[in-house]
Amino acid sequence: MSEKSDYWKIDEKLVKHVAKIARVNLTEQEIEKFTKQLENILQAFKELDEVDTSGVEPSFHPQELKNVWREDKVKPWKWDPLENTKHKEKKYFKGPKIV
């Protein structure tokens, strides 16, 4: 929902930045490939943006839903949360340090 008027403009620098935030390692060829693909995607959004939607309420769901919630009741889930991982120690999940 960017207010920026030039959001469809994308270059390799931006793709590298997004990859860094998403913690994905990309090769130079991949960066080139994704820059083109992302450009196409954003171009499609630019076309959508050209449609006149003044007077149309924004919608967030296919169905109009509001105030769906539950009461504060506990029901423990019976499972072994560590069953599917080999990255564990004692009863903890083990992971990389990231600062």
């Binding site: 539950r70 423990p76 889930w77 499972w79 560590l82 004692k90 009863k91």
Partner: peptide, 16 residues
């Protein structure tokens, strides 16, 4: 609906 009370619980016991 997992409980919030994590004192005296095993690690990852209150999960789903």
């Amino acid at each position: 609906r997992c409980p919030t009370d994590y004192e005296n619980k095993e690690p990852n016991e209150n999960t789903c």
